[in-house]
Design a protein around this nucleic acid. Structure first.
Length: 508
RNA sequence: GCGGAAGUAGCUCAUUUGGUAGAGCGAUAGCCUUCCAAGCUAUAGGUGGCGGGUUCGAGACCCGUCUUCCGCUCCA
């Protein structure tokens, strides 16, 4: 375990040293849980996006993409349930140092009293035998009525306080109910504080005239609110999908593990609209298809597994994660959810617009059901980076660090290297560079010994090194060195472009 | 937010009880070299996280503060 932690640290510092990922605002001491992508990081990231986009949009005739704005009408987040689900009143017990959701404490209190009522009912039922009338007992037994009143009163106050957003009153309620910390047993509570998991900002430059706007915590809603636009203008027929890649923002309470959990992150999502009743079939189909996509990257199938959700989110009737074996263990990489018609129905209700599809086969209209595939771009980046990072001991006893990034995703596809910096070799190498740079991203390097330059390219995951030597000047051939095997092959300059192009092609 | 650890050059680290900051690697320029790190020369790079205190003198001691890392709380 300590070893894995060690490797993870090395990966993080390698990512920084070689221009993949920098801590945000570093010269100002950093900004917690925010990272910037450097010159190679942005290439890798773009390549991942492109690989996903092609697999989803280009290879499926019935999936199209959009790019919706990050700012959206605030009511969207009420409809989606995020305004409620993302703002929790929290309270800490000063003695046990434990943190609780204030509303849950009150609800637990109510549940305890509910237990007492049930015990009273059970006792009475035993006492009265067959003639027991439970409803009458509940309505008339003095103790039960008192208990019930306490519950009703507590929950009513809680509800009112939360609606009014009156946190002081919530604390007062907890004190009035004499709720104690389950761990320390004391009533030594802090103030109730609101934890807003959504970021917000103001739209409208006049301060008295502003609206609170949320930074989206997921990209999906931008797809749902454009469902009709895309379906009608694209003449889409169910089943069909809408894909989107974009930033999302979550005010995580703690954010750790490098780019695995960031406050600002990027998702690659696809919402697939299906006929009600068929959603679980499509759920299974997309699970299989998405897993196949991951496997196609060649990081090793043993590094992936499904993790079915026991506890479903408020919008789902089935959910499953694809987990990847990161250096810190198996963690979620992609989520596949059967979101039912929750979102479209909610938006239909809140907007007053009919969000339905007329199905000519059934000759009826319905709100489509939705299967969502949502993959974390930054997590995919980390999965690739951490599985690519390799420290090797070579036969001659030397060591090298190599990033075995799948060639299709590698930031730099080829390096063009004159063997030595004289005898006209640099000029020849430049010619090749100038021709190849229109095909894919290349790098020219003439500084230092050839071996050192190979290692530099290994460290950033460049799959191919093209070396110009004296023989090149005689017969127009160069050597191509393959990163992982370090083997070289001599080929004609004219053939180089096509050889490498084939090796970096998308294959699914 | 709580507890623990740490902040010295781009990176890894040194600086023996307080005496005006150093190495290796890396970088840059050049030399040498016809194929896999560690050949030669030169150069650049640090207000020692920040602020205050003790002292003739603080990177070292004290206090505060910020940031990062590890653990806990949360994760729709």
């Amino acid at each position: 375990m300590a070893n894995n932690e060690d490797i993870f640290k090395k990966i993080i510092s390698h990512a920084k040293e070689y221009g993949f990922v920098f801590p945000s605002s570093e010269i100002y001491d950093g900004l917690s849980a925010v990272y910037d992508y450097g010159q190679y990081g942005v290439e890798l990231k773009n390549n991942i996006k492109n690989y996903w986009w092609r697999a989803m949009v280009q290879y499926h005739e019935n999936i199209v993409g959009i790019d919706s704005a990050i700012f959206m009408h605030p009511t969207i987040w009420k409809a989606s349930g995020h305004v409620d689900a993302f703002s929790d009143p929290m309270i800490d017990n000063k003695d046990s140092k434990k943190r609780y959701r204030a509303d849950v404490l009150v609800e637990d209190y109510a549940a305890k009293i509910e237990d007492k009522i049930n015990k009273e009912v059970e006792k009475a039922a035993k006492r009265f035998g067959e003639s027991f009338d439970e409803a009458q007992f509940r309505a008339t037994n003095q103790r039960v009525v008192e208990y019930q009143a306490k519950i009703t009163d507590a929950l009513a106050r809680l509800n009112k306080n939360l609606t009014d957003n009156d946190l002081a009153a919530v604390k007062q309620l907890i004190e009035d109910l004499e709720i104690v910390c389950p761990v320390s047993g004391t009533k030594n509570w802090t103030e109730v504080r609101q934890f807003n998991l959504m970021f917000n900002t103001q739209m409208g430059s006049l301060s008295e005239d502003t609206n609170t706007i949320y930074l989206r915590p997921e990209t999906a809603q931008g797809i749902f609110v454009n469902f009709l636009n895309v379906q009608k203008t694209g003449r889409m027929k169910i089943p069909f999908g809408i894909a989107q890649i974009g930033k999302a923002f979550r005010n995580e309470i703690v954010a750790r593990q490098f780019i695995f959990r960031m406050r600002e992150f990027e998702q690659m999502e696809m919402q697939f609209f299906v006929r009600p009743g068929t959603e679980l079939d499509w759920f299974e189909k997309w699970k299989a298809e998405r897993l196949a996509w991951h496997h196609s990257l060649g990081l090793g199938p043993e590094n992936y597994r499904f993790h079915p959700h026991d506890k479903l989110a408020h919008y789902a009737n089935a959910a499953c994660d694809i987990e990847f074996k990161f250096p810190f263990g198996f963690k979620e990489l992609e989520g596949i959810h059967s979101r039912t018609d929750f979102d479209l129905s909610a938006h239909q209700q809140f907007s007053g617009k009919k969000l339905q599809y007329f199905d000519p086969e059934l000759n009826e209209s319905y709100v489509p059901y939705v299967i969502e595939t949502s993959i974390g771009l930054d997590r995919t980046f980390l999965a690739i980076l951490s599985s690519a990072y390799t420290e090797e001991k070579l036969e001659d006893g030397s060591e090298r660090v190599v990033l075995r990034i799948p060639p299709v995703l590698a930031p730099i596809k080829a390096a063009i290297l004159p063997l030595i910096k004289k005898d006209g070799l640099p000029e020849k190498a430049r010619e090749i560079m100038d021709a190849l740079k229109f095909d894919y991203l290349c790098q020219y390097d003439e500084k230092d010994a050839i071996g050192r330059r190979y290692r530099r390219q290994d460290a950033i995951g460049t799959p191919y090194c093209i070396t110009v030597d004296h023989q090149t000047l005689e017969d127009n051939t160069v050597t191509i060195r393959e990163r992982d095997s370090m083997l070289q092959e001599r080929v004609s300059i004219d053939a180089v472009s096509e050889i490498i192009r084939k090796k970096i092609a998308v294959k699914l």
